[in-house]
Design a protein around this nucleic acid. Structure first.
Length: 438
RNA sequence: GUGGGUAUAGUUCAGUGGUAGAGCGCCAGAUUGUGGCUCUGGAUGUCGUGGGUUCGAACCCCACUACUCACCCCA
C-alpha cells in the first residue's frame, strides 16, 4: 500500500481500526456463521423467535433499565447528541431495547409467554480493551416475557449448557443465586448496609462507595481484604421471602431433572440493577482467571419500570467473541464446531491466456450447476495456477489446453490422488459431481 | 481512571553505540502441459513520532503517540 502522497500521520488514522474494535476476517467468519447457526437452531427448538433491535436507543432507556448506579450507565456508555440534540447511546446490552420493542409494538398484548432471541447483536462499552473484552462485542441472547414460573429460568440455563457443550466446550461452571424481590430485598439491603457501615474503615474505596449507592455490589469485590470482612456478612439467600425461596428451590429441582450440574454462589449479584430472584452465570477457568461466557437472570420488574404492564421476564446474554475464544483453545479433535466448506470444488486452469475464455465459460457452467468453481485472474502460468489452486485448497482441477479444446474435452485431476481423466465439456459438471460424492 | 510491557520487512521477531538481519509468506527459476517436498535466486524498511547526548544512535536519555496486558467492571 502506498501512502506516499499523504501527509504524515494520515496513514495511521486512515488505515487504523478504532480502539476496541475488531474486524472479522474471512479466516474467522466461517466460525462465526457456524456458532450463529447453532444458536439459531437451539433457539428454534425451544420456541424462541428472532428479534432485531437498533444499535441506537435513547440514552434514558438504558439509564432507567440498567440503573443509574450501575457502572455501565455511569461510565461505560457510548453516548452522543445527534443533530436534533437528542441524547442517543450505542446499546451496551440488549435487554432494554428488547423490552422497549416489546412494549412499543404491543407484543405484550399477544399470547404470552413471548420468547425472543437475538444473535450477533453488537454491544458497545467505553472501557479499556484487553483480552476477551473489546469495546464492541457481540452477543447471543434470549429473553422470555410473561413466564413467572422457575421452569422458564431453568429452560434457559439448560439451553445454554447444552449449546456450549455441543460445541465441545468443557470445564464450564454454572453458578446460580437468588437476589430476592422488592418484598424481601429492601429489608435485607438495610441489614447488609448496616453491616457494611460497621466495617467502613477496613473496606476498599470502591466498597465504601458501594455501601451507600448499591451495597450488594460489595459482595463480588475482588479485594481480599474486603472478602475477609464479608465472611460473616448476612446473605440474601438467608433472607428470601417465601415466594423467592420456593422459586429458587424449584429452579434447582428443574436443573437436577435436566441433569445440569450447578453450584449455588450467594455472592453473584450482577452489575445490572433490574434483576430479581434468579441470577446466573456460566464461567470457564482460564490461566488468567475465571471468564464469564454467559450471564443473565430474571427481571420481573423491568417491563413495568419502563412504563408497561406488570409482566415478568427472564433472559441472558452470551458473548460470542468469548465463545469463539474458548473454541480456539480447543484441540482440533475436541472442537465440534464445523464451519461450512468454502474451498473451490473445482479450479479451472487454462494452458495459456488465449484459452481464458474457454476456462471462463466452463467455470460459469459449473457454478450454474451448483458447483463451487474458481479460476485465475492474474494471467498466471499453468504451473502457477496449480500452486494457486493448491493454496485455495481446491479439490479438483479442470485443465483446458489446445489438445483438449480440439477434442472438446477438459482434463480433470483429483488434487488428492493425482488421478487424471478426461470428460466431454458438456459432461464436466456430472463428472465432478460423481467424483465429489465418493 | 491506576499500574506494567511493547513499537525494526507483508508477518513473527532477533539485533545493547560503528555496513539493517533471520524464519515464515510473496515472486521467479531448477521442471517451456502439472501443485504440496527440496534446492537456487529475487523484491520489500523514513528501525512509531519529535527532541537530546555522541565523531557516530535501531540501541543511551527525555517527551509524545499508538498498541498490549493487568486492576476496576463486565459478555
Amino acid at each position: 500500500m502506498d501512502f506516499s502522497g499523504n501527509p504524515d500521520g494520515v496513514k495511521d488514522m486512515l488505515v487504523k481500526i478504532p480502539k476496541g474494535m475488531k474486524d472479522v476476517l474471512p479466516e474467522e467468519s466461517g466460525r462465526w456463521r457456524a456458532v450463529e447457526a447453532a444458536m439459531r437452531e437451539v433457539s428454534k427448538m425451544a420456541g424462541y423467535r428472532e428479534i432485531r433491535t437498533p444499535v441506537l436507543e435513547h440514552t434514558e432507556l438504558f439509564a432507567r433499565a440498567a440503573g443509574e448506579t450501575s457502572d455501565v450507565v455511569r461510565k461505560e456508555m457510548y453516548t452522543f447528541l445527534d443533530k436534533g440534540e437528542r441524547s442517543l447511546t450505542l446499546k451496551p446490552e440488549s435487554t432494554a431495547g428488547t423490552v422497549r420493542a416489546f412494549l412499543e409494538s404491543g407484543l405484550y398484548a399477544q399470547t404470552l409467554p413471548l420468547k425472543l432471541y437475538y444473535v450477533n447483536s453488537p454491544h458497545f462499552r467505553y472501557e479499556a480493551p484487553q483480552s476477551g473484552r473489546l469495546r464492541e462485542h457481540h452477543q447471543f441472547g434470549m429473553e422470555c416475557f410473561g413466564a413467572a414460573q422457575p421452569s422458564a429460568d431453568a429452560e434457559l440455563i439448560v439451553l445454554v449448557v447444552r449449546l456450549l457443550s455441543g460445541f465441545g466446550l468443557k470445564n464450564l461452571a454454572v453458578r446460580i443465586n437468588s437476589i430476592g424481590c422488592p418484598s424481601c430485598r429492601p429489608a435485607y439491603q438495610q441489614k447488609f448496609r448496616e453491616y457494611l457501615n460497621g466495617k467502613l474503615t477496613r473496606l476498599c474505596k470502591n466498597c465504601v462507595e458501594r455501601a451507600q449507592v448499591n451495597p450488594m455490589r460489595a459482595l463480588d469485590c475482588k479485594e481480599e481484604a474486603c472478602q475477609a470482612e464479608l465472611k460473616d456478612a448476612p446473605m440474601m439467600l438467608d433472607h428470601l421471602c417465601d415466594e423467592c425461596r420456593e422459586h429458587f428451590e424449584a429452579l434447582q429441582t428443574y436443573l437436577t431433572l435436566a441433569g445440569v450440574a450447578y453450584t449455588v454462589d450467594p455472592k453473584i449479584v450482577r452489575g445490572l440493577d433490574y434483576y430479581t430472584k434468579t441470577v446466573f452465570e456460566v464461567t470457564t477457568d482460564l490461566d488468567s482467571g475465571p471468564l464469564t461466557v454467559c450471564g443473565g437472570g430474571r427481571y420481573d420488574g423491568l417491563v413495568e419500570e419502563l412504563g408497561g404492564p406488570s409482566i415478568p421476564g427472564v433472559g441472558f446474554g452470551m458473548g460470542i467473541e468469548r465463545v469463539l475464544m474458548l473454541l480456539h483453545q480447543l484441540a482440533p479433535e475436541e472442537c465440534l464446531l464445523k464451519p461450512e466448506a468454502e474451498a473451490p470444488e473445482v479450479f479451472v486452469a487454462c494452458l495459456n491466456k488465449g484459452l481464458a475464455g474457454n476456462a471462463f465459460s466452463l467455470m460459469m457452467d459449473l457454478r450454474g450447476q451448483g458447483i463451487r468453481a474458481d479460476m485465475d485472474h492474474q494471467g498466471r502460468s499453468l504451473k502457477a495456477q496449480f500452486k494457486y489452486a493448491d493454496k485455495l485448497n481446491a479439490r479438483l482441477m479442470a485443465i483446458i489446453g489446445d489438445e483438449e479444446v480440439a477434442k472438446g474435452v477438459a482434463k480433470l485431476r483429483d488434487m488428492g490422488t493425482k488421478e487424471e481423466w478426461e470428460a466431454a465439456l458438456s459432461g464436466v459438471a456430472a463428472a465432478v459431481k460423481e467424483r465429489l460424492s465418493r
